[in-house]
């Protein structure tokens, strides 16, 4: 991997650039928040920016851009089950008897009057 000094010096420059990019992205996500977008749009934008930042950390700082098969394999498996853990309980809670999945979510999107 990074064994010769020249390659490491090169990646050091990269680390500082990624650090700067992360600062900028954090600034952007806070700035977007000040605009007060509609909630679904705001969630989408914030999560997209967070995912970009996260993948920068993972691929550069954690060297995931060049890793070995076993680590990719274990992580792909984890991501699959992570998606299951995120989505299936939500679908199930949304799907109560007599309400198809879509309808249950729709009723949540408008806050009931209190």
């Amino acid at each position: 991997m990074h064994s010769d000094p020249e390659a490491i010096r090169k990646s050091v420059r990269q680390y500082f650039m990624i650090g700067a990019a992360l600062f900028v992205c954090t600034g952007i996500t806070v700035a977007v928040n000040q605009v007060h977008l509609a909630v679904p749009l705001a969630i989408t934008v914030a999560l997209i920016i967070a995912s970009i930042k996260g993948s920068m950390v993972a691929s550069v700082f954690m060297h995931l851009s060049h890793e070995k098969r076993w680590i990719y394999g274990a992580l792909i498996l984890t991501v699959l089950f992570f998606i299951v853990l995120m989505s299936v309980p939500m679908f199930t809670v949304g799907d109560s008897i007599g309400t198809p999945i879509g309808a249950a979510n729709a009723s949540h999107s408008q806050p009931p009057e209190r």
């Binding site: 089950f81 799907d95 008897i97 198809p100 999945i101």
Partner: peptide, 18 residues
């Protein structure tokens, strides 16, 4: 085995789709 767990929960009012 990671995608079967809610068969323990048929009686919780879970809908027919799930």
């Amino acid at each position: 085995s990671f995608v079967v767990w809610a068969h323990h929960m048929f009686m919780t009012g879970m809908g027919t789709t799930m």
